[in-house]
C-alpha cells in the first residue's frame, strides 16, 4: 500500500533574478509503514519538497505541476480549506529547529493541547491527559509540560516536536532534518526513540536530511535528490551498497564513517543555477565520469540492475564506475 505518491512534482520560486525551479519533476512513493529518506546537499530542493507536501510554502513559491496523491486523493486539487483539515490530522511535520518552531510565549504542554483541542476536538482536560501520554511516549518527563520551550535542551525540544507531531495520530510524518541541530550522541538517542515509535505505530515517514548516515541508520528506502531532481531511489540497502548514480557514489564517499574509515572526499564544484537549469544531466559539470552525450540529453529515471531507479546514461557500467569512485583520486580535479 502506498500512502503518498509524489508524481512529477514541480515547485517554482519567484526571485529577484527570475523564476527558480526548486523542484523539477520529483517522483517517488512512500509505502505504508516505511521510512523514506530524502537525501541531498543543501539547496537541492528537499526542504521545498517537504513544505510543498505540507502545502505551506512562502508566498513566493507555488507548485507548478505534478501530483501529490495521498491515500487516493491529489492534495494539489484540494481547496485550501480541505487541505487545512488534512494537515496535522493526516500529515504532520517535525521541524529542524524546534526552538524556533515552538511559540516562545506558551508552555510546551499548552502548545500540544492547542493542537489536540483545536484540531482533535478534545476538551482541555483530556487534551492535557493525552499530552502527558505523548510526553511519556517520547521519553520526556511529564512535569516538563509546564516548562517553556527555552527551558528545554536541544534534544528535549526535538522530542517535544515529535510528541507534537504524533498528537493526532497522523498517517504520514514529514521530518525535516529532525536531528541535524543535535550533537551525535543525542542524535542517536532521538533517532532511536523516533524509530521505535514509528515501528510501534506503523507510521509512514519522509525523513529529510543531508546526512546520509542518518538515512542509513533510520530509513527503509532512500530518495537521492540533486538540483531539484530525483536522481536515484530504491531500498536503502541497495542504493547505499550498490549506487548506480555517480552522485550517490560521491555522496557516500563524503561520509567516511559509513564505510569504516577512509578519507572524506567532498564532491568539487557547485550545483547548477536553478533559474536557468541545463537541459542535460544536471550533475554533468561535476561528474568524474562525464561524457559528451551527458551534456546533450537529460537521462530519465529508469530501473537499473539492482531494482533501484537511477537517472544516469552510464548506469549499465555502474559496477566498474563504482570501483573507480572508491578511489579518492577520481574525485580530485587535476
Amino acid at each position: 500500500m502506498t500512502v503518498l505518491s509524489v508524481q512529477d512534482l514541480q515547485v517554482h520560486y519567484r526571485t529577484s533574478r527570475g523564476v527558480a525551479q526548486a523542484v523539477r519533476g520529483a517522483t517517488f512513493d512512500v509505502p505504508e509503514g516505511q521510512v523514506v529518506g530524502v537525501v541531498g546537499e543543501s539547496g537541492c530542493g528537499k526542504t521545498t519538497l517537504a513544505r510543498a507536501i505540507m502545502g505551506v510554502m512562502p508566498k513566493t513559491a507555488h507548485t507548478a505541476g505534478g501530483k501529490l496523491v495521498f491515500q487516493g486523493t491529489d492534495l494539489l486539487s484540494l481547496s485550501p480549506r480541505e487541505l487545512a483539515s488534512k494537515r496535522w490530522r493526516e500529515i504532520a511535520f517535525i521541524p529542524q529547529s524546534a526552538m524556533n518552531s515552538l511559540d516562545p510565549v506558551y508552555r510546551v504542554g499548552t502548545q500540544i493541547a492547542e493542537v489536540l483541542v483545536d484540531r482533535g476536538g478534545m476538551d482541555r482536560k483530556s487534551a492535557m491527559r493525552r499530552a502527558a501520554e505523548l510526553f511519556d511516549m517520547v521519553g520526556l518527563d511529564v512535569v516538563r509540560l509546564r516548562d517553556f520551550p527555552h527551558q528545554y535542551s536541544g534534544g528535549m525540544r526535538q522530542r517535544a516536536a515529535i510528541a507534537l507531531a504524533l498528537a493526532l495520530e497522523p498517517k504520514l510524518v514529514i521530518a525535516d532534518e529532525p536531528v541535524t541541530a543535535l550533537d551525535v550522541i543525542i542524535q542517536r538517542q532521538v533517532l532511536d526513540t523516533f524509530k521505535d515509535l514509528q515501528k510501534r505505530l506503523g507510521l509512514s515517514v519522509i525523513l529529510i536530511t543531508h546526512d546520509i548516515s542518518v538515512v542509513a541508520y533510520a530509513s527503509d528506502r532512500v530518495v537521492v535528490m540533486y538540483a531539484g531532481e530525483v536522481i536515484e531511489s530504491g531500498t536503502t540497502r541497495e542504493v547505499l551498497q550498490r549506487p548506480f548514480h555517480p552522485y550517490t557514489m560521491g555522496l557516500y564517499k563524503a561520509f567516511p564513517e559509513l564505510h569504516g574509515g577512509g578519507t572524506l572526499v567532498p564532491i568539487e564544484g557547485t550545483p547548477p543555477d536553478l533559474i536557468d537549469p541545463p537541459p542535460a544531466c544536471s550533475f554533468a559539470e561535476r561528474c568524474p565520469f562525464v561524457e559528451a552525450a551527458c551534456r546533450e540529453m537529460k537521462p530519465a529515471l529508469a530501473p537499473v540492475a539492482s531494482g533501484s531507479l537511477a537517472a544516469c546514461r552510464r548506469s549499465p557500467e555502474a559496477d566498474r564506475l563504482r570501483v573507480l569512485a572508491g578511489e579518492a583520486s577520481t574525485w580530485l580535479r587535476s
Binding site: 505540507m54 505551506v56 487545512a84 483539515s85 488534512k86 494537515r87 496535522w88 490530522r89 504532520a92 511535520f93 521541524p95 529547529s97 524556533n100 518552531s101 515552538l102 511559540d103 516562545p104 510565549v105 492547542e114 493542537v115 483545536d118 484540531r119
Partner: peptide, 28 residues
C-alpha cells in the same frame, strides 16, 4: 517566524494564527 509557519502546518485557523500566536508575541 518558524512558529507561525508551524501554526499553519498544524492547520490552525487564521484567527488562531494571527491572534493567539503572532499578535501575542508582537504585543510584548
Amino acid at each position: 517566524e518558524d512558529f507561525v509557519t508551524m501554526a499553519r502546518m498544524k492547520g490552525l485557523s487564521n484567527w488562531a494564527i494571527v491572534m493567539r500566536h503572532a499578535a501575542r508575541n508582537a504585543l510584548l
